[in-house]
């Protein structure tokens, strides 16, 4: 029990089955708090599926997932929604910003569904990703890199226990990629637990630990 309390994430024998396809097969993975983990693997190897299970957007077909000591399999849909709200910060490859809201408002949306909006705090989050001067811009007025940084600010705003980023630099050029990696470095330094999916080795190289998936199995863990 003390072991599980120490780990923020514990995945035991998790499989995800889509009809005849096993997207994940008996995955075992433990992540201590504050770790920066990178998940690599070819397209279709199950990286996004694993991220969705960790992020409470999906459930495992078999096996147990413990997030911060909670067994996700025992939770209802509404409770999983609550976990997403309280404990998880999501960063997507396609950003998924709301097109009709400004950068600032997009960050505030996360506060809105979490607890209470606080414009000053949202602005501070934008400042941390270097976008204070872009607060009033709509997503379409921002570059890809800037949109991804808004997305990061949104993921951070409610102080999540774990940050999940699925190919966060997949749509970015090198300059923006290094900006985003710098922000992740700062977060890591501040003690955040980070899981990043990527198939770019130079992105994975920033992490403390890299696991590689192939056909739904962990084939390497360094």
């Amino acid at each position: 029990m003390s072991e599980s309390a120490r780990n923020i994430l514990e995945i035991t024998d998790v499989s995800k089955i889509y009809g005849p396809l096993k997207a994940l097969e008996t995955i075992n993975l433990t992540v201590p708090p504050g770790q920066w983990l990178a998940i690599m693997g070819p397209s279709g190897s199950g990286k996004t599926t694993l991220m969705n299970i960790i992020g409470c957007l999906d459930t495992a077909s078999e096996g147990a997932v413990r997030l911060d000591g909670l067994n996700l399999a025992q939770l209802t849909r509404a409770e999983l929604t609550g976990i997403r709200r309280e404990a998880i910060g999501l960063i997507f490859q396609q950003f998924h910003l709301i097109s009709y809201l400004t950068a600032l408002e997009n960050v505030m949306v996360a506060q809105f569904y979490h607890s209470m909006v606080d414009e000053g705090e949202a602005l501070a989050a934008l400042e941390r990703v270097g976008l204070a001067d872009r607060a009033k811009h709509l997503p379409r007025q921002l570059s890809g890199g800037e949109q991804q940084r808004v997305c990061i600010a949104r993921a951070l705003i409610n102080h999540p226990k774990i940050i999940l980023a699925d190919e966060p630099t997949g749509n970015l050029d090198e300059a923006n990629e290094s900006l985003v990696m710098d922000i992740l470095h700062n977060l890591h330094q501040a003690g955040s637990t980070i899981v990043v999916v990527t198939h770019a080795p130079e992105v994975a190289a920033h992490a403390e630990r890299v696991i590689v998936l192939e056909h739904g199995r962990v084939v390497s863990d360094k």
Partner: peptide
């Protein structure tokens, strides 16, 4: 639908 999906991913209840 994407916007709805996003709001749900951020932790919004269906009802809301």
């Amino acid at each position: 639908r994407r916007e709805i999906g996003l709001k749900k991913a951020l932790g919004a209840e269906n009802r809301r």
